[in-house]
């Protein structure tokens, strides 16, 4: 669905590296992109690789076919959400269809969420007495708030993309045919920002929410002053003063 440049060969996942961002596509459309051992291992490997790849400034996660990810075949958590969350660069979820169970946990471990109109999001496993175990209970409450999180966990309630937007679980709802271009536009836009500043902004928010405000302010200031040592800071400020687009090198 995305135009291809450098495509890594995996069997359950496609990793398509573009100029300065990468698109990971869950690629088991015949099985609703349900996570199996193969897919889980490939995702862990890809995330590790992309994290170290300096050319990749932004990661987009999507699914092949009409479903984003229908859940998991594995009884125990597979660590895919954790692998995505460990990416230091921005991760955009392009939710092309339903994200259920562990599929929703993958969505929650991304930073910005775009969803096609009508996509369904839920934790259906709770109706069988099973708790999300790949970060779902923690990340859902931190993103959508305590009330909505508990309601979804108590009832297995399914949210449409529109409802998810209303509770802050999805940043933007788009029509199906617009998803790819929206996700690419967003990835290109993010890739034009200073890469180290993006990583530090993500770290400041995510780590900062785990500590007191006072400790978070310390973290922010330390990261801010570390950025003083980068060429990109000088470039960004010069470009602004000269009214031109900055050319960030990630240094």
């Amino acid at each position: 669905m995305f135009s291809k440049r450098e495509i890594m060969s995996y069997s359950a996942v496609i990793c398509d590296k573009r100029q300065n961002f990468a698109v990971i596509t869950l690629n088991r459309p015949e099985s609703d992109n349900v996570i199996n051992q193969q897919l889980a291992q490939e995702m862990v490997d890809i995330c590790r690789e992309l994290n170290e790849d300096e050319e990749v400034r932004v990661v987009v996660l999507t699914g092949a076919g009409g479903v984003f990810c229908g859940g998991s075949e594995l009884a125990v958590p597979c660590g895919v959400a954790a692998a995505i969350a460990s990416l230091e660069k921005p991760v955009v979820a392009a939710i092309n269809g339903d994200a259920l169970g562990q599929g929703l946990e993958l969505v929650l471990s991304c930073d910005i969420r775009l969803a096609v109109s009508g996509a369904k999001l839920s934790f259906p496993q709770v109706t069988k007495g099973i708790l999300p175990m790949d970060g779902g209970t923690q990340r859902l409450a931190r993103i959508a708030g305590r009330g909505k999180a508990l309601e979804m966990l108590f009832t297995g309630e399914t949210l449409t993309a529109e409802e998810a937007y209303n509770v802050g679980l999805v940043n933007k709802v788009v029509e199906r045919e617009a998803l790819v271009s929206e996700a690419e536009t967003m990835a290109t836009d993010l890739a034009g920002k200073a890469p180290i500043a993006l990583r530090y902004a993500k770290e400041a928010v995510n780590k900062g929410l785990d500590v007191t405000l006072e400790q978070g302010l310390r973290l922010e200031a330390d990261l801010y002053f570390l950025l003083h040592t980068t060429d990109d800071r000088t470039e960004g400020i010069r470009a602004f003063q000269e009214k031109r687009s900055p050319d960030f090198k990630g240094r």
Partner: peptide, 30 residues
């Protein structure tokens, strides 16, 4: 982030505490 820096007047901390992680990350990153 488009200037090669991050907010330094508390914004990375106060923004997510005010509007939540999802919106804060979107606004700060984009």
């Amino acid at each position: 982030t488009g200037l090669g820096i991050i907010p330094a007047a508390g914004g990375t901390q106060t923004l997510p505490r005010t509007i939540g992680r999802g919106y804060a990350l979107e606004l700060l990153l984009s």
